[in-house]
Design a protein around this nucleic acid. Structure first.
Lengths: 124, 124
DNA sequence: CATTACAGTATCCTTTTTGATACTATATGC
DNA sequence: GCATATAGTATCAAAAAGGATACTGTAATG
């Protein structure tokens, strides 16, 4: 985040919901987190997992999540470079959210991305 | 959504996570859904709950979620108008996600919106 | 000696999203 | 007769997010 698409200051009831998605609603953040759930990954490993994400965006999303304390960046003093990304303790606590999203998606998203559930039988 | 900030076609594993947040990552969507969890609300009731949301945006977010099948819009043939919004059956299945977000937020978001968890004691 | 892999940056540009403001029509209450 | 509440629209402008492309330096590999 850091630019706060989801504002952080109008804390009426429900705002914690907002604040929470705020941290994962970058275009690639949720998938990155999802892959990191399975363990540490290097920059280019992530790139291969998260297809279509340019290095610019990957860096961008990783840095924002690092700033937010969700992931940890470990730089090895080597050449060629080696940088490992992993979930921080805080990041790991997001697992229930990620799993809830995954389960919902698996159950309700059709092959072409539209939610399935307008009860198609109505018109059949 | 409908404009798909989170792409719907690159369905590598993890994409269902992406697809799921895609439906709730509009700036006001999660709060709207959160409030609708408690029951049906009229347009202006929602406006009052979701402070700082202009009518334009409220309409916009509601319409997108309606398109995505998450909420139901019921128009009464009256003047002055009466329109009620409520969660659809599909929308109701999002409750676990919303609750997971809420719980995480309540536990980890400080009063000013930054996640709490960089272990402040380290520097104390 | 040339190539490849590593982990990014830098720059520019387009698209998407959001905000601000003013406006609509009509029934009811004062 | 006038203001108010209802559920929005319309138009314009600004900001944020994301994409495309090219580039960096060094070590190991062939």
């Amino acid at each position: 985040m850091a630019k706060a698409r989801h504002s952080r200051f109008d804390c009426t009831p429900g705002c914690s919901v907002e604040a929470a998605i705020g941290l994962i609603d970058g275009k690639w953040k949720s998938i990155i987190l999802w892959h990191l759930l399975s363990g540490t990954l290097r920059f280019n490993e992530l790139r291969r997992h998260v297809e279509n994400c340019t290095p610019r965006m990957l860096t961008n999303q990783l840095r924002e999540m690092e700033e937010d304390g969700l992931i940890t960046r470990k730089v090895y003093a080597q050449v060629p470079p080696k940088v490992e990304y992993s979930l921080s303790d805080l990041g790991k606590t997001m697992e229930p959210i990620l799993r809830a999203l995954k389960e919902w998606g698996d159950a309700n998203i059709g092959l072409y991305g539209k939610p399935v559930g307008h009860d198609p039988r109505d018109s059949a």
